[in-house]
């Protein structure tokens, strides 16, 4: 088991952690999820048939574990909201994480786009992270997500449209601020 872990860790760990981190945007949660991913991967390592590449197999497990995590979080949030009866405005209560140091030191535009990622759907976010932050090819992204290439392209197109719109709105907001000063 150690040998399999070493092999996967040496080849993919940096990318794997980064993917999970950008999905959940919380270091502690990313650490917990990555641990869960290794447990799942090592438990099913003997069943890997090599029909997809080891890399896309590993990332598809990571994506499923991350989505499970989101679902659990959503259920937990729903229970809390039901308990406090925040009613219709419950969805407005945001779960904001502090901006990590790596992002905080970057320029305004990068910080802005980092926050805009949360406005995308989970599917769009997965595609954007895999394609642009992890530099996966369209084919690799399709294999990881278990989609067709055309679905990847459409989702990517929609995600970029959303981000572009948000970026424009941000720019306009900045201009208005400068004008009013």
């Amino acid at each position: 088991m150690r040998a399999a872990f070493d092999d996967l860790y040496d080849r993919y760990h940096k990318d794997l952690f980064q993917f999970i981190f950008y999905m959940v945007k919380d270091r502690q949660q990313a650490e917990d999820i990555v641990q869960e991913v290794y447990i799942k991967v090592l438990n099913s390592y003997h069943t890997f048939k090599g029909e997809s590449s080891e890399k896309t197999w590993l990332f598809s497990i990571a994506r499923h574990v991350t989505i499970d995590f989101f679902r659990k979080q959503q259920r937990k949030r729903k229970k809390i909201m039901d308990f406090f009866d925040w009613g219709e405005k419950g969805h407005l209560i945001k779960d904001e994480h502090a901006t990590p140091d790596e992002i905080a030191v970057m320029n305004e535009e990068i910080r802005h786009i980092y926050h805009c990622l949360d406005k995308c759907t989970i599917d769009q976010k997965s595609v954007v992270i895999l394609r642009y932050i992890q530099s996966f090819s369209i084919q690799e992204t399709a294999e990881t997500l278990g989609w067709t290439v055309s679905k990847v392209k459409t989702t990517q197109h929609r995600a970029m449209k959303t981000l572009r719109k948000l970026l424009n709105e941000g720019d306009r907001g900045e201009e208005t601020k400068i004008e009013s000063q």
Partner: peptide, 29 residues
């Protein structure tokens, strides 16, 4: 521009030690 900004996103690395991570994984298993 969006694409360029995304590609410029910083690398975020795991600060956990490899052996410590393996111990946690095997303990959980």
């Amino acid at each position: 521009k969006v694409e360029k900004l995304l590609r410029k996103m910083p690398r975020v690395e795991d600060n956990q030690d490899k052996d410590a991570l393996f111990s946690k994984v095997s303990a959980s298993m």
